[in-house]
């Protein structure tokens, strides 16, 4: 499947696919400040959604609510048919299905790259060590750094670290990948290598939700773009519509500032 195929699903096809993430009127407060105001959106299977918006618009908070790194206070979230409640069993189930990549990589600095990747498959998925290590090496091959397996995260460049983080998340064989500003902490010359890995992942049919400021990536890979501001979804649409013909004034203002 080529990239152009992936971006031209008809709406009929979309409608027939299963709902992977349902966010229905999600509210979140930090003290008196309301970070999310009734955020409602549904993300389909194999869909790539890019969330855009100015800083402080609540996009990171929203994505972090989806695997319970933050707790939403109103509305409902369901991931792959599992309702996200206070029940720890549901949280465990969802976290096993959802991989996450962070802005600051968050690799474990005291163990090798390979151990970073195999830790969760061995202890959470209960894979035998040999099998997990094979999987880890395959994934490192896939993200383009098989030779770094026995190094420590601190010995890698930022771009390489982020690719290890992607491999670590993939090692759990998740159905959904969340990316929280994966390239914001990187030097410009390293951004491309990480985006390339993410594009390959999108092409392979992974359901992805990406918070980013990379407009080129959004335009090229996204099936849909969700634009947020002040904790609300302002506009939703396919990239061609979003970048060339936005309807909302706030979207226009944002695009004029950023492009």
């Amino acid at each position: 499947m080529s990239i152009s195929d992936a971006t031209t699903f008809t709406s009929d096809e979309m409608a027939s696919r299963a709902d992977m993430i349902i966010s229905d009127g999600v509210d979140k407060w930090y003290g008196d400040f309301q970070a999310l105001k009734g955020v409602t959106a549904t993300i389909k299977e194999r869909e790539v959604v890019v969330v855009l918006g100015p800083s402080g618009s609540g996009k990171s908070t929203w994505i972090r609510c989806i695997n319970r790194l933050e707790q939403h206070q109103g509305g409902r979230i369901a991931v792959d048919g599992v309702e996200l409640t206070n029940d720890t069993r549901n949280i465990e189930k969802i976290r096993r299905e959802v991989g996450m990549v962070f802005q600051g990589f968050n690799l474990f600095p005291h163990i090798t790259v390979l151990d970073n990747i195999t830790l969760a498959p061995i202890w959470v998925r209960k894979k035998p060590r040999g099998e997990a290590e094979q999987l880890g090496r395959d994934l490192l091959e896939r993200v383009g750094i098989p030779e770094q397996a026995d190094k420590f995260p601190g010995q890698l460049s930022g771009g390489q670290q982020q690719r290890v983080a992607i491999a670590r998340a993939l090692a759990m064989e998740p159905r959904i990948m969340l990316f929280d500003e994966p390239t914001s902490a990187l030097d410009p010359e390293m951004i491309k290598e990480v985006l390339d890995v993410m594009k390959e992942l999108a092409r392979s049919g992974m359901t992805m939700m990406v918070v980013t400021h990379e407009m080129g990536f959004a335009r090229e890979v996204a099936d849909r773009i969700i634009f947020m501001e002040s904790g609300e979804i302002v506009e939703v649409g396919p990239p061609e519509h979003f970048f060339t013909n936005p309807t909302e004034d706030r979207t226009k203002l944002f695009l004029s500032q950023i492009l």
Binding site: L69, E92, M100, F102, G104, N106, F108, A120, V124, A169
Partner: peptide
Amino acid sequence: RRGQYEASDALGLTTVQRTMFI
């Protein structure tokens, strides 16, 4: 750093595993 806890949680490690390994 908090990121270490978040990464462990996101991977689905239990509290005991997170404490022992990370």
